[in-house]
């Protein structure tokens, strides 16, 4: 796994012209421990550094966060986002005018705030003195102490935000991302006959005749979509093949999968890598592990092992 990650990062380094270093935890160190592990990398120039959770998606307001951080001069800043039902989350209580965080409340029973930690931070290297090299939670152990010292500030996020750790939320996050792309870089989106709404298609993908794709579809490199296929609200990963006249809604199709003809898949059906779905099947919320071959329909949501 780490080889694949490393290769992917090398590729991004080339593409973006930046240096990407990897710090590998031999044992899970929680959300703060890894920072201690990478102490030398992070503190080398004495400048503030960003820390991101990888499973959230938003418009990543780095410039705004950096200038907010410089302005207040505290040790750390975190991005917060508003939610409808704070009781489901840990919320951040901060001063309305300065953003200085007073405290954190886990799953509040009475309303104290509707802002939650969005998983995007910027810290001065000084924070590393607070973190020891052992499994540590940044949210539970480091932040409360920083807030107590008045060193932690919150900046409210504008625009969309989604924790995309689960397939259902991943698809929702994808829709939000494509919508944001429509606003900022509409030229990156695909258009043409049979394309509906926000659709992102890799240039190497092939789409057959009489297909209707979209809204909210992402199609990866080398994907082949045969004739007469209907796809909406799906992500189709690299190398997959969707055979003719299939109908897909709210699915994630894994790498190198093959979906047969006249198949219907819906309701957050997720196919792992290299799954084969035979012709004329119905998959409802199926969660299929890699390298499986599906020969019969899955009428109710379940895991196929």
């Amino acid at each position: 796994m780490s080889d694949a990650l490393e290769a992917a990062m090398r590729e991004q380094e080339q593409r973006l012209g930046i240096r990407i270093s990897m710090s590998h935890e031999k044992e899970p160190l929680g959300t703060a421990g890894p920072l201690a592990l990478a102490r030398d990398l992070l503190a080398e120039d004495g400048e503030p550094f960003f820390v991101l959770n990888s499973d959230v998606i938003c418009e990543f307001p780095f410039a705004a966060l950096a200038s907010f951080h410089r302005q207040h001069g505290g040790e750390g800043s975190l991005v917060v986002t508003r939610v409808e039902e704070p009781a489901k989350y840990g919320v951040v209580v901060c001063e309305a005018d300065t953003g200085r965080i007073c405290r954190f409340v886990e799953k509040p029973r009475v309303f104290v705030s509707n802002k939650i930690n969005a998983g995007l931070y910027i810290f001065n290297p000084g924070i590393l003195q607070r973190i020891q090299l052992r499994p540590t939670s940044i949210e539970k152990e480091i932040f409360p102490a920083m807030a107590q010292d008045g060193q932690l500030y919150a900046m409210e996020l504008q625009g969309f935000w989604m924790d995309i750790g689960q397939p259902k939320d991943f698809l929702t996050g994808m829709c939000m991302y494509l919508q944001a792309l429509r606003a900022q870089h509409p030229e990156k989106l695909h258009s043409g006959p049979g394309v509906v709404g926000n659709v992102l298609v890799d240039p190497s993908a092939k789409i057959g005749a009489n297909c209707v794709i979209g809204p909210n579809v992402t199609i990866g490199a080398g994907v082949v979509v045969e004739d007469g296929v209907r796809i909406k609200r799906c992500t189709v990963l690299e190398g997959a093949r969707i055979r003719s006249h299939s109908w897909l809604e709210s699915c994630i199709v894994g790498w190198s999968c093959s979906v047969g003809q006249w198949v219907r898949m819906e309701n957050v059906t997720v196919l792992g890598e290299d799954v084969i779905v035979n012709d004329e099947l119905y998959l409802n919320g199926a969660n299929v592990l890699p390298h499986k071959s599906i020969a019969e329909s899955v009428p109710e949501p379940r895991i196929i092992m």
């Binding site: 409808e84 039902e85 704070p86 009781a87 029973r109 009475v110 309303f111 509707n114």
Partner: peptide
Amino acid sequence: VQHYVEKPSTFVS
């Protein structure tokens, strides 16, 4: 009004 939510699933106010 600081927060408004229609028919929440958890207690809000």
